[in-house]
């Protein structure tokens, strides 16, 4: 008979992944976005980290790291088995957060780069799609984070499209815009072997981007699914 024990600090059980969230103005998050709980294969719990902003990380300002560590530890105490974030720029803090807790941490899809690189071979290009403000700094950010890939990395800026009169998200216009960027990117870099969507708001458009580019597309959700598969392996109910 299985015996279950309380975990001490929280009554809530079964929340597999904790998500460190940007301290920024909330945006509409359709299914697929990191900020939409229904995007995940497992139950997730969100926690906003005071002072965690994209602008700071892009500028190399890591002063939110203490808050980040504190929030990550709090999530671990509450029983989550893995930690991710809703901002790919958090790659800058990946190593510090991973060293501060004893559960696996995967803050950014950019940490998949070394594995993607070897799987397609060094002669092929990896394309990273992110918001226009981030993309100019992308190559620097990857290098600063200590991620080494021999492959050429190309970056591409694309953005969420708001409805003209309101702050509401226009899904179709956003998808069309990202698809346009992806098509341009493939035309400019025909040897692209894989794409990484750095931005946590981009996964809803991954299918359309892949239909256009024809290459594997990785993002924060594929990364979270990968992490979940390792922290909670499932029995395969097959047959011989």
């Amino acid at each position: 008979m299985p015996i279950y024990r309380t975990n001490g600090s929280s009554e809530i059980c079964g929340q597999a992944i904790g998500i460190l969230c940007l301290d920024e103005e909330p945006q509409p998050s359709p299914p697929g976005a990191v900020n939409n709980a229904s995007s995940f294969a497992c139950p997730v719990v969100y926690r906003v980290v005071p002072g965690f902003t994209t602008t700071k990380l892009v500028d190399g300002n890591n002063d939110c790291v203490d808050n980040m560590i504190e929030t990550a530890r709090e999530l671990q105490r509450e029983g989550v088995q893995g930690i991710i974030s809703n901002c790919g720029c958090a790659i800058a803090l990946q190593s510090m957060i991973a060293s501060a807790v004893s559960i696996p941490v995967a803050l950014s899809p950019l940490l998949l780069l070394p594995m993607i690189a070897r799987s397609i071979g060094a002669q092929k290009t990896i394309a990273v799609m992110s918001a226009p403000s981030t993309h100019k700094h992308m190559v620097n950010m990857i290098a600063r984070a200590g991620i080494e890939v021999a492959n050429p990395v190309t970056t591409c800026g694309a953005d969420i499209v708001k409805q003209s009169e309101t702050a509401d998200l226009d899904f179709s216009a956003t998808e069309a815009s990202l698809v346009h960027s992806a098509r341009q990117l493939m035309a400019d870099n025909p040897h692209t072997g894989a794409m990484v969507l750095e931005d946590g708001r981009f996964p809803p458009y991954a299918k359309a981007i892949q239909d256009t580019s024809g290459v594997p597309v990785f993002d924060a959700i594929t990364l979270a699914d990968f992490l979940f598969a390792a922290i909670h392996p499932r029995a395969r109910q097959g047959h011989m």
Binding site: P28, S38, P203, K207
Partner: peptide, 13 residues
């Protein structure tokens, strides 16, 4: 497999 065969998300808002 997931990365090479992306699907439309069927969650809710």
């Amino acid at each position: 497999q997931k990365a090479t065969h992306r699907r439309r998300f069927e969650g809710y808002y």
